[in-house]
Amino acid sequence: MPEPTPAPVHILVAEDEPLAAMALEDFLSRRGFRVTLAQDGLEAMERHRDDPADAVITDLRMPRMDGRALIRELRSQSATLPLVVMTGFLSMDEGQDDLTSDRWKPLEILRKPVSPQVIVDTLLRLIGRPGGSA
């Protein structure tokens, strides 16, 4: 009897720019990930509550609930959920604040623009999977 195929890794993407979100969804889906999109932190929390993700990618600046608030909420529920922050608005001073604290790990901050392959490589490293097996 063949072994069951493992379920694809579920990635929740919180991004308020529709074109960026759809492009990332397409790229990740083609690499075998299951992707759920949310337009802001509140929607991301709702989607995560209904269908928990294996990892979350979030922008920092979003309406209703920003990325920092989303990270705090997610961390209150799971100390080990892998998080990837994609932002074009993180100054060096901001980068030295609570996001770089060990209490938020596993968390990686990527500056926009970022290559989709870098995002995939970062996700795979954070979830502990070897380089191409989503």
Rank of each mutant, 00 (worst) to 15 (best):
L110C: 03
P52S: 06
L110W: 04
G41F: 07
V85I: 12
E15Q: 07
P106V: 06
R75M: 11
Q117E: 15
G67I: 07
I119L: 15
E43N: 04
P2F: 00
G67C: 01
A38P: 14
A134V: 09
L83T: 14
L81W: 05
R125H: 15
A44W: 04
R125Y: 08
E46N: 08
E108A: 08
D59M: 00
E15T: 06
H48P: 12
L70W: 05
E73M: 11
I57W: 01
Q96D: 12
E17G: 06
R47T: 03
L37W: 06
S29V: 03
A69I: 05
K112E: 03
D66R: 02
V120H: 10
I109A: 10
E73I: 04
E108T: 15
V9P: 00
L12W: 00
D66F: 03
V35Y: 10
D26Q: 07
R31N: 14
M86Y: 00
V56M: 02
K105F: 08
P52G: 09
W104A: 11
G128D: 09
G131M: 14
I71H: 03
S133L: 14
R103E: 15
R129W: 03
V120Y: 07
P82H: 05
L37D: 08
A69G: 09
A23R: 04
E46I: 07
P116F: 08
G131N: 12
I11V: 14
G41K: 08
A69F: 03
T87W: 05
L24Q: 07
R125N: 14
L99Y: 03
P8A: 02
V13T: 03
M22E: 14
P113W: 09
G67E: 03
G132E: 13
L81M: 09
P8M: 02
H10F: 03
M1Q: 00
E3T: 06
L124W: 07
M92E: 15
K112N: 02
T100R: 12
L126H: 13
G131D: 14
G41R: 10
V85Y: 05
L83C: 09
G128I: 12
T36W: 02
R129Q: 13
E3M: 11
D50G: 06
E25C: 04
P113L: 05
T87S: 15
I57F: 01
S78Y: 05
D98M: 08
D97K: 11
R72K: 11
